[in-house]
Amino acid sequence: MLTLTAASAVVATHRNPYVPDEWLVSYQRDLMTPFGVELDPERLARGAGVTFQELAGQALELLPEPPKPDLVVVAHGLPDHYPFRSIGGHVDKLLGGGSENFAISEQGLRAPFTALRVAAAYHRSGRCRVGTVVVVEQGTFGNDEPLARDGLADTAAVLVLGGGGPWEIAAVPPASDDLAELVSASVAGHRPLVVAGPWAGDLPDLPVHRVARGSYCTSVWLALARHHEEWAQAHDALVLCDTDPRTGRSHAALLRRASQEGTT
């Protein structure tokens, strides 16, 4: 049984001095121009310039103790400010090395849900005893990114998955076009809590913790990292969910109190 054994969340408040980087500008311009997207280097200069490596490192430092994972999965819905570094390899190095590590991207806010599903599958197959999922997001872009127009915080959440924690990773169902139906099908327990992201619409008549705007794919995972211990005192199941504003598709994950038995 794969459970949540520890978690941390960070919202960066610092800015890095802007250093013009012609290689970065050239790379991003070559990437965007074929799709009719205009690159404005001044946007890079105005941003905080915080990288995924920084965010991951800060979040790992906030854990009660560093894990020793055999699997590291990094998840992000938007690209890094400086996209030339391996984040999974960096996290692996910070944690002592030796883990299988990779990133899941190009899925929008679905990426962390996929990461959780992958970690659970690794655990079931016997290839993962301790897993670490790192969800990262930054807000510096050289183009007009719609999701960052109102400000996008530089954030990271780390979920340490192993044995003995209070929350079992019970199910990560397929995406759906109907969020209310997805949540209803996912919910379990007698005292459930729905943790809903910024774009979650109508929900079943259940207790709900709504996450404020300001983040995209990290939103519900930041809330889980901050509150999972207190929620374990009041609830026996959590449904984390949100609807991706880019696709209209909804995603959910069910966490159940580890001592609870039954079907999902």
Rank of each mutant, 00 (worst) to 15 (best):
H76M: 00
E229S: 14
A237Y: 10
V72T: 03
V74K: 03
A6Y: 00
D177R: 14
R246Y: 13
H209M: 15
H227E: 15
D80K: 06
L193F: 15
A232I: 00
A171F: 13
L255Q: 02
A121V: 07
V73D: 01
L147F: 07
A234C: 00
R213A: 14
G162M: 01
R117E: 08
V134P: 12
E145L: 12
S186H: 09
P66Y: 04
M32G: 01
L161E: 05
Y18F: 12
P67G: 04
Q53T: 09
G189T: 12
P204C: 10
G165R: 05
I169N: 01
L222C: 08
G47Y: 07
D80S: 05
R256A: 04
A252T: 01
G88M: 00
H76A: 09
A225S: 05
D92C: 11
L2M: 13
R246M: 10
S219C: 12
N16V: 05
P173N: 04
Q28L: 09
G108Q: 01
E61K: 05
P207S: 01
P83W: 02
G214R: 03
S184L: 10
V130I: 07
L2A: 12
G49N: 00
P198L: 04
G139A: 04
H227D: 15
Q138D: 06
K93D: 06
V11L: 14
D178E: 06
W199V: 06
L2E: 04
R85T: 15
R46C: 01
A212E: 09
G88T: 01
E168P: 01
H209P: 14
P20V: 05
D178S: 12
L255N: 03
L182S: 02
A234K: 01
L238W: 04
V194W: 10
V74A: 00
R15K: 14
A12P: 01
P112Y: 03
G96K: 05
Q233M: 08
G164E: 10
E145V: 11
V25Y: 04
G47W: 05
T5E: 03
A171Q: 13
W221M: 06
F84G: 00
S8M: 03
R15N: 10
A9R: 09
G49P: 08
L193N: 14
T3K: 09
D178H: 14
L78F: 13
L152G: 08
A180D: 12
L152Y: 08
E22F: 01
L62M: 08
P20K: 05
G97Q: 08
R226T: 11
R210H: 09
N101G: 08
E230R: 15
